[in-house]
């Protein structure tokens, strides 16, 4: 079920060389929900980034990733380049 949350999350990610066509330059590997809204500080290993794209919010770029976790849940993570904060935008 799609539910929008916009909660703060901690993300460990891998930075890749930006050489592949359309390939991600940054790949989230693990995420931890802080437990304020949900998840109770749970950590998830990300099995696969199923899609990624970017958008502009004013002058700041936002990087979106849809992540499939090992528990088969799908989340949309957003990194705001203005605040350099990761947010969990929604659970799909």
């Amino acid at each position: 079920m799609y539910s929008e949350t916009y909660e703060d999350v901690d993300v460990i990610c891998l930075f890749l060389r930006p050489t592949e066509i359309a390939g991600p330059e940054m790949r989230p590997l693990r995420m931890r929900r802080r437990g304020v809204i949900g998840g109770d500080g749970q950590a998830f290993k990300i099995r696969k980034i199923t899609c990624h794209w970017s958008s502009m919010r004013g002058k700041f770029r936002q990087y979106h990733y849809t992540a499939l976790t090992e528990t088969e849940d799908v989340y949309e993570l957003v990194l705001d380049s203005g605040t350099m904060q990761w947010k969990l935008r929604c659970e799909m």
Partner: peptide, 21 residues
């Protein structure tokens, strides 16, 4: 599902890059 134009534009641009190779 409500469409997400930014996502589609990003992927469309990636596909064009493949063609331009």
């Amino acid at each position: 599902i409500q469409g997400n134009p930014e996502k589609y534009i990003h992927i469309s641009a990636g596909i064009l890059q493949i063609l331009q190779q």
